[in-house]
Design a protein around this nucleic acid. Sequence first.
DNA 1: GTTAATGCAAACAGTTTGCAAACGG
DNA 2: CCGTTTGCAAACTGTTTGCATTAAC
Lengths: 148, 148
Amino acid sequence: MTACSLADKARASSIRVTPQRALVCDVVDAADDHPTADEIYERARELDPTIAIATVYRTLKVLEDGELIARRDFGTRKGRYEAFSDEHHDHLIDQDSGEILEFYNEQLDALICKIAAEMGYKVAHHQVEVYAEKADQPPKIRKRRSAR
Amino acid sequence: MTACSLADKARASSIRVTPQRALVCDVVDAADDHPTADEIYERARELDPTIAIATVYRTLKVLEDGELIARRDFGTRKGRYEAFSDEHHDHLIDQDSGEILEFYNEQLDALICKIAAEMGYKVAHHQVEVYAEKADQPPKIRKRRSAR
DNA sequence: GTTAATGCAAACAGTTTGCAAACGG
DNA sequence: CCGTTTGCAAACTGTTTGCATTAAC
């Protein structure tokens, strides 16, 4: 059983994990959404009201540089952070609720690699953002109004 | 032969096209890169040194709201603008040169639609950003060093 | 003990906004 | 004319940085 927490991974990457950094790590770890720096700051402050926003930003930067977390924009100007999971995934943003859903599709990754290769490139990483709204009826099983 | 310039399209969308706005339109039209607001401002100033950056931003906003241009981030915090072409396309960013290449792949679009549909969503728009570096040898026709 | 990390506040970049003057139909 | 757009400067947001203080090996 390997060490799993973000703080552990940071230590494994020989990043010095101070109490403040550990706190930021824990907040990011615990988040199942994609919090902004500000949201991370707020959540961290609940446990340590003395933590500074600058420390949050600096920690996020350190973790990002260590490739332990990723910063994403999703069109807005605010950075949103998420721990790197082992498998790559992409995002679908519900335009109505703002909810961000994750998905992974092997074919998609493969296709992107192939396209890049055809252009003479080797993919370092990629990012697919799908802005969508809920379909009127659920995916396969349509309910009522079968008509046209 | 339909009207084709961005300014014409703006007029067609009943956006008031003042000389300043026309200028911004022309700059965006003429750009074959993905200029930032600042770059657009600089280019516009060459023809009208009195134009204000605020006007550039306001015009870009108007055009964006009118769905005539798109704003993209590409990871940096600066917005980059491009006229909507008729066909959707995605972007490959050369990590070494910073160059932004466009590509279109029908299969990719279809696959994304399919994935979204499986999640119960209808795609409004999407955006694929591929960060890549040049492959050592060209796509199909490899030159020299055939070995290994 | 010296190097690195923190908190604070000030700086910064990109973008937006209030307002009076100029413009356009 | 009257509403819209402009230019200017100031405000604003998200993020970074300088610096003195504090903490960690």
